[in-house]
Design a protein around this nucleic acid. Sequence first.
DNA 1: GTCGCTTGCCAC
DNA 2: AAACGTGGCAAGCGAC
Length: 601
Amino acid sequence: MSGLDGVTLHLVDSMDEVLKLRSWLGERRPQHALGFDTETTGLEFTDTVRLAQIGDGMTGWAIPWDRWGGVFEDVVARWDGLWLAHNMKFDVGKLDNEDVFMPRPRVHDTRIMTQVLDPHYSTALKNVAARLVDAAAANAQALLNTSLTDGSGESGWTWKTVPITYGPYWTYGALDPVLTYRIWEILWPQVDATCREAFEIENAVTWITERMERRGVHINTAFAREKYDAFTAYVTESAQWVKDTYGVTAGSNAAIVQVLQEAGFAFDKATASGAVALDKEVLGAIDHPLAQTILQRRRLQKLASTYLKHFVEEVDAHDLIHPSINVLGARTSRMSMERPNLQNLPRKSNSNPAADAIRECADTRYGETGTMLMCDFDQIEMRGLAYMANEQPMIDAFHSPNDFFVELAKLVYDDDLIVKTDPRRQVVKNAGYATIYGAGVEKFALTAGIDIDTAHRVRRRWNELFPGVAKFQNDVIAVALQRRETEGAPYVRCPLTRRRQVADAGKEYALVNYLIQGWAAAVFKKKLIEADDAGLGEWMCVPVHDEIVLDVPNEHVTEAAHTLVKVMNDDRIAGPVPITASVSYGRTWGSKEAWVEHHGE
DNA sequence: GTCGCTTGCCAC
DNA sequence: AAACGTGGCAAGCGAC
């Protein structure tokens, strides 16, 4: 059968339709699953359900919420099979708000299925449906969606105002669970056969992050406001000073460059498109009050507008901020976070002491009776590299009680006296990460702050010491290129994605990084599930790639930290490479106090 | 006024 | 032969 021929759509607007729906439901077998979806007044947290839809591959039902919501609730109570949704976190959350609770363990997300099979494709329902089910129907539906989103249709209606009885609205609504069901029919056999564990991990992590989103992160709003006001005042006053003194706009790079050129400074760094670069590195090297003022203004503006502004303006009545966590954020299986992104809060730094305030804004919601716990893996990606390359000297270094990069530096420089403060340790660390990212010698030299000749020597020595790493890199690329011949595109198989393709032809070197990053993301997600199973789910707030942040009442801190240590340290998950993690704690996320386990307490 | 592009910068 | 991966976000600016 082609496309959607023969599909029947119903609007449940009478007792007669309700009876038809009940009779239809009675004929469903639990193994057949049901698709569901909601239409809401919008995408904001405060927006509510207007229509709830259910369906299978041939029949879709649109249920107006205000009048017939109880019918949907009744179906949820009766159905004991699988529920399918595309982007389930959104719909289940909206239904939660209406006091209708979907049975989470029985809800499977078709968006996750597309992602684990091939993250190269768009996961948006309309695109997946157009690709797998019926292009014309999906595109017509997308057109309506756009007109409702921006009110651009002839009617001027929006998601909030469109009459439920408007034909295109309810029919396309009723079609969504049908499309979801069809997608499931096509994708589930592939997922089941090739990447079922990946699907189960992503589906489980989705519910864990949904809980984190609801729980939120507490903000010390008085402190955040004080810093925001102070930084913003500097931003405004310095801009005025720049205008008064030099007659230019502080935010206009071209104008600033011109003033500095007239003052005798030369510029040789270019941007991607060939303009004169004026980044912090360039500014830092210019000994001129204008350059230094612009630099400091940029620093404080970044802190005020990217972080503090959200902290001040977007907290709820309990001073909690609720970012949105995207489990399928990166095509390497990493998660991403937005509004705001708490994965890129500045760390403590000597060059920008003002930045310390940002992590100090995120504090425990329990005041004097709570503690923030931060637990992060130690060099997780380097361990992944050692594991996948099976590189014995690296594995040995990970078993040493000493610092990993000190041990590596001793090998590279053939000097047993190297200590942690030796600058050669940093060079070797940079060499390691340059390998993971696929950097050339030139970029490696630049980031390590060494000359090209030294970089060449270090890299030569590195390859000599770790031949397994080079072999691993070459093998990954060779296999990928072979796949290009036989399957049309070069790709790697990661633990949570069946095919991770290169973004651009000629960038095959990046596949090594995809593999390592994808492996690390899988380890992290498995540990989130273990931590949740061990009872830590109620305290967890933020996942940061290799770190979990928790907000714990003091009476549970000792046990929570102990559980974290037990879950996150693992000498089995990476073969001969031990995975270790460190816990720190304090009143705020910025606290650095190391947690030491006291046995026998 | 909005949109898309560019530039810059924060994290892991 | 060539070569730093994954994200989110804000501000300036020209184009519509």
